[in-house]
Each structure stands twice: as C-alpha cells, then as structure tokens.
Amino acid sequence: MITAERPTRASRVACYSLPTLIVPLTVATTAMGGRLIVHLAAPAGDGRAKHDARRLLSRIGCWADRLSRHLEASELSALNADSRTRVPIGPTLAAALWAAREAADESEGFVDITLLDARLAAEGLSFAELAAGVRRSWSLESGPRRTAVVSRPPGVRFDLGGVAKGWLADRALVLLSSWPSAVVDADGDLSVRCRAGDTWAVALDDPRADGATLAIFHLSAPATGWSVQWGVATSGTSVHRWRRGEILHHHLIDPRTGAPARTDVVQATVVCGSALRAEALAKAAVIAGSTDGLALLERAGVKGAVILTESGETLALPQTLTLLAG
C-alpha cells in the first residue's frame, strides 16, 4: 500500500493583458463531409493570399477524396473492397496510413482505424459485429516512390476518419510555408503556425448551445524567437450521434469492446504540436473517460486540454490556463 496526499487543486489568480490578435484572410470550401478552411495573416484584399489559399484547398480537397470511405472511387474504398490480404497502395493513402499508425501509438491504442465494421454495426448499417476486445493487427511496408503495401487479415476494412483530417491539416500547413502565420481548419481539427510576436485566437465550441464558446485559446509565439506550430483538435459524443430504441449511440468506438465508448466525457479538446496528434489524443481522452483520459493526456505531455463531462464539469490540465484568454 502507498499513502498519498492528493495535490491541492489549482486556483486561478490571473490578470491577463490582451494581445493583438490576427485578423485573418479566410478562404473556405467543403470536403470530407465538413468544412475545409484556410486562414492567412494577410490583408483582406491580398490577391496572392487568396490565390495560395484557393490552390491549397483544391489540392487537399483532391487528397481528401482519395481518403474518403464515402466515395466509391477513392483509394480507401478500393482498398476496403480488395479481397487480397496484401494490397499495394498509392503515396497519398500510404502517407495517411503511416499517420494512422502514429496516431495509434500516440493514443496508446485508442485510435484504431480497423473499426469500420463495428461503427457501421453501431449505426445499424451493417450486420457485421466486432468480437469484444479483439484488436486486429495490420502492417505497412514501404514501396518505391512513397508507395506501400498493406497487409491485413481478410475482411479488415479501414476508416481513416479523424486521422485523415488531422494529417491533411498538418500536410496543408507545410504547403503554406511561404505564410509565416497560417491556420488550416480540417472540419474542426486545426494546424496552426504562428510567426514570432503573433497571436491566433482559437475559440473552443461549447456543444451545449449553438454558437456558444466554452473557452478561447491564445496561441502565440514569443516576440523574439522562431515561429511556433500548434495542433488543436476537438472530439466528442454530442454531435455525431443517433438513437437506437431508447439508447443514444455515438460514433467513437472503443477498441476494447467494439462498441460505442461508455464514457463520462462529452467533449475533449487538446492543444499540442500537430493536428494529427491533437486529434488522436482528444479522441483517446473521450473514449478513456475523464479520469483515465486526463492521465493519458498528462503522460503525453500536451500543451493544453479541456474536457467537458456529462455532469457539466469543465476540467483542464494546469498548463492549459496559460493558453486561455480571460
């Protein structure tokens, strides 16, 4: 046995001077069943900024189409329809699947892209059921010119979901390297670059009321230093959900059970170094529940995390307070 005195809860004693926030030039489109937006720190009428943003949206829109399970012509749909256990795939899907393996590692296994059939079963769209607690392993081998070969057990189908959004946001930000302060918003998962001295204000949606804001993050880079890259992502059970009989189901499948996660977390938001990682950790925190989820986020060394629970509590790790605008 160990005796331990629990740490005292933190108290807020702040005064906060408001920084000068970026008023961005924004260009938006739809992709992946949601919004795809580029924000650039540029004057409203900047022609080069608009041109760059539109060209980027067109390009990552093409990538998104290759990774969607909803489009029959996508690379992912072709892989899912392929009956072979070893399937060669193209560079875009290969990069996204490598990202999925990284997300699985980062989330301590809570992110698992092989749960498509379990999710469809939960939605009532498929009769396939995943055996409880069974993890289905798959692997990737690098091929020439950034292609790869996927190996998986027969019948395993993939759903990239949030992994694709996080990866696309990060990849798109790399393509905007000529813009020192930029944000790519892949349906709520953000990849943010901040030039030294700049501050992006990022609002965190409150799912309890339309248009409400739970908190505002101020993401900045020190005035004397390098630019800083951030990833911000939100995951939860209160938007993408449905009712079967008397029971509300949601889309976040617990890989330990193969069923929608039974959790006290309604929504989790994570701030860290990349959108892919933030998305994976936010999803893991929701599935794991508030106690285990916050412990996981602390182990992961995130820069900030805010969790909203079923009982209406808003919980955060202490380091989050330095990011929050008062």
Partner: peptide
C-alpha cells in the same frame, strides 16, 4: 476554467460529424 470574454473569434475548433 475562465469564462471567455465575448469577442468575435474567426477560428474555431469543434467536434466534426
């Protein structure tokens, strides 16, 4: 967690779906 000031913020992080 401090309540945010009512300010117009363009960039938002949300749940998807």
């Amino acid at each position: 967690v401090p309540a945010p000031a009512q300010r117009a913020v363009v960039v938002r992080t949300t749940q998807s779906g």
